[in-house]
């Protein structure tokens, strides 16, 4: 038990020493039937429990970005790319004519089409460009959003717990998820970076 705690300490353990506990115990009159070490162990576990509780309680609504850049199914890929470049985002939701989120399109989807040996990262594309002639994006010139998007879109609701979103990111290997309101309309988007806005990571209140 003790060993596991020290190994994990870097992650979420509060910075507290046996000495701190000892001093605190001195302030409580009467004999406390616990060693400072055991007390610390309880404290660390309780602290983690509280963090976990905060993560469970926080919902998508609290951390999502509301100003979402989005595209239509028939938006040309050139415009999609320009929009993503302009807004500095790595992915956008794709909406159909009825404003329903039908897919998500991300840098990764572009890279997938532009790299040859199945490696979907930027440097693979650079390597390809240096090796071959011409631009790798030529192949998708003239296509539109729904040719490239990931569909159906993985979405969450405004009241989805943040912990579940984190799990989704991991399970589906995605980096953002559109947030729908009660009527199913696009209300915002949560990216991996937004998770860092959580109270336990900021040291403030959510």
């Amino acid at each position: 038990m003790v060993e596991r705690l020290t190994a994990d300490q870097g992650k979420t353990a509060p910075d507290i020493s046996d000495e701190d506990i000892y001093e605190a115990m001195k302030e409580i009159p009467g004999y406390l039937d616990i060693t400072p070490g055991d007390f610390k162990e309880v404290y660390v576990l309780a602290y983690r429990q509280a963090q976990e509780r905060l993560l469970h309680r926080a919902t998508a609504k609290e951390i999502m970005t509301r100003e979402v850049a989005w595209v239509r199914v028939d938006t040309p890929l050139q415009e999609v790319a320009e929009l993503m470049a302009q807004r500095g985002v790595s992915g956008v939701p794709v909406l159909d004519g009825a404003n329903r989120v039908v897919g998500v399109i991300s840098e990764k989807d572009f890279l997938k089409r532009m790299s040859s040996q199945g490696i979907t990262n930027f440097m693979a594309v650079v390597a390809g460009c240096l090796r071959d002639k011409g631009c790798k994006a030529v192949g998708i010139r003239g296509r539109q959003a729904d040719d490239l998007m990931n569909s159906p879109a993985v979405t969450v609701r405004e009241d989805t717990p943040v912990l579940e979103i984190a799990r989704l990111f991991k399970e589906k290997a995605i980096n953002r998820v559109p947030v729908l309101d009660a009527q199913g309309r696009l209300a915002g988007i949560v990216s991996r970076g937004d998770l860092l806005n959580l109270a336990p990571f900021r040291g403030g209140k959510a």
Binding site: K26, P29, G30, L32, T35, P36, G37, D38
Partner: peptide, 17 residues
């Protein structure tokens, strides 16, 4: 061992015990 002994209680506490 991994930690230290709890602190000594006050004289008043000892008297009540």
């Amino acid at each position: 061992g991994t930690t230290k002994s709890p602190p000594r209680v006050s004289l008043v506490e000892i008297a009540w015990s």
